[in-house]
Nucleic acid binder design. Structure first.
Ligand code: MN
Ligand code: MN
Ligand code: ZN
Ligand code: ZN
Lengths: 136, 136
DNA sequence: ATCCTACAATGGACAGAGTCCAAGTCAAGA
DNA sequence: TCTTGACTTGGACTCTGTCCATTGTAGGAT
């Protein structure tokens, strides 16, 4: 993820230890942490980091398109570092586990013009629901 | 919507003025009100109705399958009386307007087995994003 | 028509998620 | 090294939703 840090520096980001640990925490596949989970993990490396800074940094990463916001339930938003390859989510109704999935085909193709009500439709998010192997 | 009230009475629901106005407020097509919007409209007819009762009643209607919960943003949940005919949602990124849409095809068909990670997949919610005619 | 009581409504305290702000700190260019 | 505007901080605040002890009432029983 140091390529991410490089890109951000290039965009004029002032590099701070707080931003570094937040970016480090948000690394890996199938990572979908809440802001408070990010804060807890960041605080293991940098105990005095504040909640406000985590929220600020996540918001900036989202605005820059480096991280995607995901809300699969009515609870806290989750932050997804896998923002460059578009994908959808498969959520376990039992335990809440989230996997990245790549459906075939384009969901937009399934929305005919007369179902668009004059909207300019630009994207679609799909949440698949089911039970994971442990919960089934 | 008096058919709804009939159905509920048949299920042993005790009929109160509060439940009646909540059910009345939740009538129509493309209706996706937040709990507080439901409360505000219900209070126009029954000024002393409490927020807690609105939340209780909405929760019961959802449990009975008469109303669907929809969360299209990270904000308040919305309550959708159109729960009997399955449908998806088209949301304006500008003003938040929500329309019911019926895409062709089954989204589940687009999720191949090797993308299911052993989950038992039972459903899919699709949120289409775009700009409505006024916002475009 | 009245009584009874289990179920429902109420309002206020509480909790979770997120935003805002004034004051203090510091990264990095001069 | 100095300077300064960007960044961080903690706490207050908002919004959404839940919980609970108390009070009220729908509807069956008499
Ligand atoms: Mn993801
Ligand atoms: Mn709907
Ligand atoms: Zn599970
Ligand atoms: Zn609009």
């Amino acid at each position: 993820m140091s390529d991410l840090l490089e890109r951000l520096r290039g965009r004029g980001w002032r590099m701070t230890s707080q931003r570094r640990v937040v970016a480090e925490v948000l690394d890996g596949d199938h990572v979908h942490l809440t802001a408070d989970e990010v804060h807890a993990r960041a605080a293991r490396r940098l105990p005095e980091i504040s909640r406000a800074t985590v929220y600020n940094t996540l918001g900036e990463l989202v605005a820059l398109g480096e991280v995607a916001e995901v809300s699969t339930d009515g609870r806290a938003k989750r932050y997804d570092p896998n923002a460059h390859r578009p994908h959808q989510h498969l959520v376990c109704s039992g335990c809440g586990a989230i996997r990245d999935v790549r459906p075939t085909g384009d969901p937009l193709a399934d929305l005919p013009a007369q179902e668009r009500f004059g909207f300019t439709v630009s994207g679609a998010e799909v949440t698949y629901r089911g039970l994971c192997p442990s919960c089934a």
